[in-house]
């Protein structure tokens, strides 16, 4: 799925969170969006799918393979979500429904968008669990019985179960410990490339970005300040904002 964002603006109350954002993702491309916390990157991903809070006002255009998302009605957006676009959120423990089993959570997009028999759904969930490296027995567990890495794998399985054409990963590794972080990024990249889907990967961590994406946008105070190939950005950041983010990664790396 290709994405084309033009002049996107997001305002809540008197606060302008995002303005004049242009962003493109080609079919099968993995694109990053990086910025410090509060820079509005999460809002952009939410705006693409109508997940912004009630009182957010959007302007501009978000084109998802020919479908305009800004101003679209709730039913159209809901049909896109889970069917054509899979979303992975930051904290799996808060995003997985705490009162349902992991298996029920993973099959939810299937139940909402496709008419399948119970057995077919169970089969797909089983195969998906294997793909993300989870034991089939975990399907009957509740999220609070999983480790952080396991829970995020379950969230990835939920996002990918319908083989969507676009994956939006909103800081999927931030809540994890360092070893799980690398595993999750590698898993996500492999699964996305295998399925030929596009991906928008959001993070504030340049080292994660380098592993997950080929091209990236740097966001500061709701505006895109720089964009280009991820390796170029990392090697030669041309704006001070990008430089700071790279510098922060470097400094921590040296300590």
């Amino acid at each position: 799925m290709s994405v084309s964002i033009r002049d996107l603006g997001i305002v809540i109350g008197s606060q302008t969170l995002v303005s004049d954002v242009d962003l493109d993702i080609a079919d099968g491309e993995r694109v990053g969006l990086i910025g410090s916390s509060g820079s509005g990157k999460s809002m952009i991903s939410k705006a693409m799918l109508g997940l912004t809070p009630d009182d957010a006002v959007l302007s501009g255009s978000v084109n998802l393979s020919g479908v305009e998302a800004v101003g679209a009605d709730e039913v159209t957006l809901a049909d896109l979500r889970g069917r054509y676009v899979g979303t992975i959120l930051q904290d799996p423990f808060s995003s997985l429904n705490p009162v349902t089993t992991v298996g029920r959570q993973i099959e939810l997009p299937l139940r909402l968008h496709y008419r399948l028999s119970k057995a077919e759904r169970a089969g797909r969930v089983r195969r998906m669990l294997a793909k993300v490296g989870l034991d089939a027995g975990l399907a009957d567990r509740h999220p609070n019985e999983l480790s952080g890495g396991q829970a995020q794998r379950a969230a990835i399985a939920t996002a990918l179960i319908t083989s969507p054409r676009l994956i939006v990963a909103d800081e999927p590794t931030t809540a994890l410990d360092s070893i799980a972080q690398r595993q999750i990024v590698d898993l996500l990249v492999r699964l996305v490339d295998d399925s030929g889907a596009s991906m928008l990967f959001i993070t504030h961590d340049f080292s994660v970005l380098a592993r997950a994406t080929t091209r990236a946008y740097v966001l500061e105070h709701g505006r895109v300040v720089e964009s280009g190939a991820t390796s170029d950005l990392l090697a030669k950041p041309s704006t001070p904002q990008a430089g700071r983010l790279v510098g922060a990664a470097r400094k921590l790396a040296l300590e």
């Binding site: 939410k46 799918l49 109508g50 997940l51 809901a78 049909d79 979500r81 889970g82 069917r83 676009v85 899979g86 979303t87 959120l89 995003s95 997985l96 429904n97 939810l108 997009p109 909402l112 968008h113 969230a155 939920t158 996002a159």
Partner: peptide, 8 residues
């Protein structure tokens, strides 16, 4: 948000 992202 996750439930909505799944298609609700």
């Amino acid at each position: 948000i996750e439930a909505m992202a799944c298609g609700y």
